[in-house]
Design a protein around this nucleic acid. Structure first.
Length: 551
RNA sequence: GGGGAUGUAGCCAAGUUGGUAAAGGCACCAGACUUUGACUCUGGCACGCGUAGGUUCAAAUCCUGCCAUCCCUGCCA
């Protein structure tokens, strides 16, 4: 799947670095904050960092960016690694940003000693005021000129827990006039008494992202720190930290546009809300765009990475059509998923010229594109189920399936003719069909050479297995969220009833043995996966394209 | 009355030392094939590269102005 060698502006940068000798190897990392589950958007950052490392024979780290204990949890740590492995981006190393808290602290003292950082007593509100605005420069903090000794003393006492939360910060001394607000003496340490999922209560001061991230990268020997475009403004600060701490060699940050997908909400905040309020069953509810939900729904890791690959890497804000993902899934599953017959909306058919007590087995091809997949024996009996929509009392133009007096092929089996229609006298509803099979022709082309256009799927009523089939009509529960007006919220677009459960599905008997996670193509109905949790359910992964248009 | 990034078809996206039918994929349309109206195959789909000028024999590619979108005013990441 995909080409051996992937090219985009990031790969060109890396190749230039390698060619010019600025770098002699490639080492990347995926640095999620463990504050939620990975989703399809995360897959892009994972894919880029992973493929760039592997393409140039380098290493790829998973690093938990856990510098803010108030938002993080071990549950997320566990899920992230699991999802990463499932996707196939197996990390060469797993690190925790919090494991570098000692280094961060040492480096901070170093910054203080070289006069590059100071302890500031401004409150959050005051700090905001001093910072200035987008159009006005900021003012220097009155504490900016404290002596090295005083700063060091204060910082050590911050660490020792002598000051209450939020009463002081350590700030980098850069430039309050800078048009880039990130550079206006940014806070690099805050006082925060919060239990850390990994460090416990060891620390009451925590480094901030802009300061910790370059240190983490440098400590791990990262060469190319690939992140999304919203960190572009932070790059000068990233460079400032690297330069002022004298990292050599030092990592370099490059930015690409993050992935947005139509009808799909990536906001971790909102996804968490859906989970916590019980509107969905959990982070792996098949309606969600999380990696674990896609997995449960039946998407393959290959198709997700293929989607990311085809969506491309550039620097424009982009909104990729969800149908590209669907196309990737269809393409893969079409090659790999065994075909099975299932009837989601059953209509009884009686083959009047077929004996009541007889069972005939027809060999049916498992995958027309893969001969090694072999065949299976499907039982045929006098009473069958067919799809209700495969019969039309009054056929619309170009309708090729069954109609009164018409013929149709039962896939892999006989051609049948509809002789009689049984209708409910009161409602007119069709309750059954009486048909006769061309027993002479069998599963072959008709001896008289007549053409029978339509082919429909069927299941023996006597041997049918039962299961629920779950359709997701509105992908990921949200419609048109990408064009959401400002006065609306995600809740206005929530469509929790978008799942259609079809309780009376008739499945060909071989489906009774399917394992959770197994994927199939149900004839003309789409690709389905037996749910891993709810095992009497088959989830529709994606529907087949339907080019049938009457008239 | 700031700074940065970006603007190529419905959606992504190649193409940048200027060179003369503007790759490819998704979507869509038409047709062929078909024991799944799937798949596959064939053909179509930007007289145009945000816009207005300029330089040039030649511009998506260079220059200038303008417009639009996104990011930045967390002791979040």
């Amino acid at each position: 799947m995909g080409e051996d060698h992937i090219t985009h502006f990031i790969s060109e940068i890396i190749e230039d670095d390698l060619k010019s000798g600025r770098e002699d190897h490639v080492h990347t990392r995926f640095p999620p904050e463990p504050n939620g589950y990975l989703h399809i958007g995360s897959a892009k950052a994972i894919w880029i960092n992973y493929t760039m490392a592997k393409q140039y024979g380098g290493e790829f780290n998973l690093r938990y960016d856990d510098t803010n204990p108030s938002k993080e949890d071990v549950e997320y740590v566990r899920s992230i690694e699991q999802d990463l492995r499932w996707l196939g981006a197996v990390p060469d190393h797993i690190f925790y940003g919090s494991d570098y808290f000692n280094q961060c602290y040492e480096y901070a003292e170093k910054l203080i000693q070289s006069g590059k950082a100071f302890v500031c007593d401004l409150t959050a509100d005051e700090l905001r005021e001093y910072r200035g605005t987008l159009t006005e420069p900021g003012r220097e903090s009155p504490y900016r000129s404290r002596s090295v000794e005083e700063n060091l003393d204060l910082f050590r006492r911050m660490k020792a827990g002598e000051f209450p939360d939020g009463s002081k910060t350590l700030r980098a001394k850069i430039d309050m006039q800078s048009p880039n607000i990130t550079l206006r003496d940014p806070a690099i340490y805050r006082i925060l008494r919060a239990h850390h999922h990994r460090q416990g209560d060891k620390w009451c001061i925590y480094p901030l992202y802009d300061y910790a991230h370059p240190i983490q990268d440098a400590t791990e020997g990262i060469t190319h720190s690939l992140c999304s475009l919203e960190f572009l403004n932070n790059r000068p600060l990233y460079d400032w930290v690297c330069d002022n701490l004298g990292f050599n060699p030092r990592p370099h940050q490059y930015e690409f546009a993050r992935l947005n997908v139509t009808n799909t909400v990536m906001s971790k905040r909102y996804l968490r809300k859906l989970v916590e309020t019980g509107l969905v069953d959990g982070w792996d509810d098949p309606r969600l765009p999380t990696i674990c939900a896609l997995r449960r729904r039946g998407y393959t890791p290959e198709s997700i990475f293929e989607f990311v690959r085809r969506a491309g890497v550039a620097k424009v804000y982009s909104l990729v059509d969800i149908r590209l993902l669907e196309a990737c899934v269809r393409e893969e599953l079409n090659r790999t998923a065994p075909r099975r017959m299932a009837v989601t909306n059953p209509l009884k058919v009686t083959i009047t010229n077929f004996p009541e007590d007889k069972t005939e087995f027809f060999p049916v091809v498992n995958n027309p594109e893969d001969e090694s997949a072999g065949k299976r024996e499907v039982p045929f009996t006098r009473e069958l189920w067919i799809e209700r929509e495969d019969f039309a009392l009054v056929p619309p133009p170009k309708f090729q399936r069954l109609r009164p007096g018409g013929e149709v092929r039962l896939m892999g089996s006989y051609i049948i003719r509809c002789d009689d229609v049984i209708q409910d006298l009161d409602t007119g509803l069709v309750t059954g069909l009486l048909c006769s099979a061309d027993l002479v022709t069998g599963n072959n082309t008709p001896a008289d050479g007549r053409k029978v256009r339509g082919t429909i799927h069927w299941v023996s009523a006597k041997y049918a297995a039962e299961a629920k089939v779950r359709h997701f009509d509105k992908l990921f529960t949200l419609e048109n969220v990408n064009e959401m007006p400002e006065d609306k919220t995600y809740d206005d677009y929530l469509n929790v009833d978008s799942v259609i459960e079809l309780p009376n599905c008739k499945l060909e008997p071989s489906l009774a043995d399917a394992n959770p996670g197994d994927r199939f193509q149900f004839a003309r109905l789409g690709y389905y996966c037996r749910d891993t949790k709810d095992t009497d359910v088959f989830n529709r992964i994606v529907s087949l394209k339907d080019s049938y248009k009457p008239q």
